[in-house]
Design a protein around this nucleic acid. Structure first.
Lengths: 330, 330
DNA sequence: GCATCCCCTGAAAGAGCTTACATAGGCGTC
DNA sequence: GACGCCTATGTAAGCTCTTTCAGGGGATGC
């Protein structure tokens, strides 16, 4: 209709700079009147490029994941890419299957959460020569590109907050650390910091639970049943912390001075519930992860590891333990 | 490698029944040793079928959406389809763009939330002859297939619950009804039911707010600033209800007898927060929406409209209003 | 004024699969 | 025993784009 070859149309659409202005206008007019839309399958086949990137996350049931995904999507779309989302449910085997499925679909890049993936997953990535990035972890010395923060260091911040408030008997309700390096990092951070700066006589009790409200409740219940229950509880994430908070409330432990609870992640509701927590800038992580991949896809060699600043959001759920609070009264 | 033609391989892979057992085994062995993976782009191009279905939702920031999506994904995967997710942020124009993008990608079917979409969106769907279904609405007489419940009827259930508790002064914090037929349906249901069964002297105040915690807080604040503030507040969804609950708490309105709040949706946290709400079986809706599409894709003519049963979850946030509570005391 | 070079465009060859159609056996039937 | 039909497999023609390569035409330089 524009009186040109298909080659020129193809160029006008994907490399507008390579076609003269007159032709480009004619082609665009024709495209508009014909409502022409390129067949993406044919484009993928011919160009060996899908303009598709996949993000594989353990869950979409929390705002941190959602923010992350939204940020990734926004950045990717601006660059003309489509986002595919995979949800593993924290199962490495499932993650591998999803990886294979996406690779078969010809995704141009992948974004993972955490750095601990099945060897088969890494092998598949290697075999297809597809770039990827691990988000929510920071391992500058590791072999894989990443965007995030050091979970041990984050845990240290949390512990120090509690130590400064005067807590000595500190417990933890962690999420299952098997196949979850972020959970493992947080546990390690708590243990290390307490070993270095805490009461030498205190062996920190750690309960691993599924990341649900009920998991948090059960975890706290177990901690409170100990002969010497802790005065402060660190939770592996905010969902567990909500559970702990609700369980404490139901047991009549209302004030933070009776039991301090601190979380990890800073979900939307955490501020409203007065939960002290480690704030994670999810949207920024997502955006930078997408940025990394786009740079790779454009042929660049972006920074291997990007560090994200985190900060502690101290709120009402943490306070000096009762004994101290009394001591320090005038 | 198996000594057969590509046609036979293709058949062995997609229509195993049409190939003899011996060859099938030979081919599968070859596939395994070569780690052969079909090129999906080529398959899409040749078969004019992408084995991809898209779900377009307003947001993924709540558990109802997430449950829905997970259920859709599970059902689709079982049938060999891949799910593409689009997020509109409640913007019809964006929804249209996403639709066009997915259509260009050759999706085989689409799942929408609600039934009010831009004419351009419906036109695009029509033009491509792609089947779709609207979930979370039930309009047996409407022109479009749907899986869900009648939002008016649901609102009626909520109003009746409050009326039965003895509330007469009922207000509403709704989500923005522009371009959101579910919000509009709920508002209409509240107004109608109250007009029919409520106090004739009471004109129900309705505040529309964005579906956020802060929206809920602001909405409640406005209602409480009225000359005759309501004794019970219906919220368009649970997020708004959380906001209302927090605002009420911060104002010292602790008991449901001072101010009853009821939501819509029944998110994970609602039970913990003691929020009365209309329970929506999100996973079932998602599963059935996927089921509908799969049936269409298989050439069938499934039910045009599927009704989902809903129920009211009465919890601590609703109670008889104070005056009545006192009256009914012995 | 002619040669050189560069820019723009077109022709044509794939990219890797599916599927309609052709073909070759195998079997049942009369 | 021959004919016909059915099933299993092969042949080859697409599906719709991208991209290499070649060529034409205009501008530039000497």
């Amino acid at each position: 209709m524009a009186g040109v070859s298909t080659a020129t149309v193809s160029r006008a659409l994907s490399l507008p700079g390579k076609v003269s202005a007159g032709l480009r206008a004619r082609i665009q007019a024709a495209v508009a009147t014909l409502q022409y839309q390129p067949n993406i399958a044919a484009r993928m086949l011919a160009a060996r490029r899908s303009w598709t990137v996949a993000a594989i996350v353990p869950t979409i049931r929390n705002n941190v994941s959602a923010s992350c995904l939204e940020a990734i999507q926004a950045r990717l779309e601006a660059a003309g890419y489509t986002l595919l989302i995979g949800v593993t449910g924290y199962e490495p085997e499932r993650e591998y299957q999803i990886t294979e499925a996406f690779l078969a679909r010809g995704v141009d890049g992948l974004i993972y959460t955490g750095a601990s993936h099945l060897p088969a997953t890494y092998a598949a990535l290697e075999r297809h020569h597809v770039p990827f990035v691990n988000q929510c972890v920071f391992e500058p010395d590791g072999p894989h590109p990443c965007v995030g923060f050091d979970n041990r260091e984050a845990a240290r911040l949390v512990v120090q907050h509690l130590l400064e408030l005067g807590h000595r008997r500190i417990g933890m309700v962690a999420s299952i650390q098997l196949a979850n390096d972020r959970a493992a990092g947080r546990i390690a951070g708590v243990v290390e910091t307490l070993a270095a700066c805490g009461d030498p006589g205190w062996r920190v009790p750690i309960i691993e639970q599924c990341s649900t409200i009920d998991g948090g409740r059960a975890g706290l219940a177990l901690l409170l049943a100990l002969p010497t229950p802790p005065s402060a509880v660190i939770c592996g994430n905010d969902i567990l912390a909500y559970g702990a908070l609700f369980e404490a409330r139901d047991r009549g432990l209302r004030a933070a001075s009776e039991l301090s609870v601190i979380g990890f992640g800073d979900l939307d509701l955490s501020e409203q519930l007065g939960l002290s927590t480690l704030h994670v800038p999810a949207a920024e992580i997502g955006r930078l992860a997408a940025e990394y991949l786009l740079a790779r896809l454009a042929g660049g060699a972006p920074l291997h590891a990007t560090r994200i600043e985190i900060r502690l959001a101290a709120r009402a759920s943490t306070a000096p333990p009762r004994a101290l609070a009394v001591d320090s009264a005038p």
